[in-house]
Amino acid sequence: MDPANETKAVEETSEVEEAPNAEHEAVVRWRRSQMLSLGIGQLEADMLAESDADLGLLRRLVGKGCPPPLAVRIVL
């Protein structure tokens, strides 16, 4: 492969990798804000936002009166 084409291919690959990372970070920020709005503590919200924790389940539990710390334990 021509070195110029190889450099271009590496740059294009980097751009493709950055887009999903930016999207992932946006989703994590949104999930964190949603969890904080439920009364979940910062540390737990940070941890849960990065996980596959079920945000809908957290909302239902807290909405039915479950204390946020207990809801976190249930979801984990």
Rank of each mutant, 00 (worst) to 15 (best):
M1A: 11
D2R: 12
D2T: 14
D2N: 14
P3N: 06
P3W: 10
P3Y: 10
P3S: 06
A4G: 00
E6C: 03
E6L: 10
E6T: 14
E6W: 10
T7H: 07
T7I: 12
T7W: 01
T7R: 11
K8N: 06
A9E: 15
A9T: 08
A9F: 12
A9L: 15
E11S: 07
E11P: 00
E11M: 05
E11T: 13
T13I: 12
T13M: 02
E15S: 09
E15D: 13
E17S: 12
E17G: 01
E18R: 15
E18C: 03
A19I: 15
A19L: 14
P20K: 11
P20Q: 10
P20F: 13
N21Y: 11
N21W: 10
N21T: 10
A22H: 08
A22R: 15
A22Y: 07
E23V: 15
E23Y: 14
H24I: 06
E25F: 08
E25L: 13
E25W: 10
E25M: 14
E25K: 14
A26L: 14
A26T: 13
V27I: 11
V27Y: 05
V28R: 03
V28D: 02
V28Q: 00
R29A: 05
W30P: 00
W30D: 08
R31E: 02
R31Y: 04
R32M: 13
R32D: 06
R32Q: 14
S33M: 14
S33H: 11
Q34Y: 09
Q34H: 11
M35S: 05
M35L: 15
M35K: 03
M35H: 10
L36H: 11
L36R: 12
S37N: 11
S37T: 08
S37L: 01
S37E: 11
L38V: 01
L38G: 09
G39N: 06
G39M: 14
G39A: 13
G39H: 12
G39Y: 13
I40L: 02
I40W: 04
Q42A: 10
L43F: 03
L43W: 04
L43V: 13
E44M: 08
A45K: 10
D46T: 03
D46M: 06
D46A: 03
M47Q: 02
L48E: 10
E50P: 01
E50T: 05
D52V: 02
D52R: 02
A53N: 01
D54N: 15
L55E: 07
G56P: 10
G56T: 07
L57I: 09
L58E: 00
R59F: 07
R59K: 15
R59W: 07
R60W: 07
R60P: 01
L61T: 13
V62R: 03
V62D: 01
V62T: 08
V62M: 04
V62G: 00
V62Y: 09
G63F: 03
K64T: 15
C66I: 13
C66L: 15
P67R: 04
P67M: 03
P67T: 08
P67S: 01
P68G: 05
P68Q: 04
P69I: 12
P69R: 04
L70H: 11
A71V: 14
A71D: 02
A71K: 04
A71W: 08
A71T: 10
V72Y: 00
V72P: 06
R73S: 02
I74L: 09
I74D: 00
L76Y: 00
L76A: 04
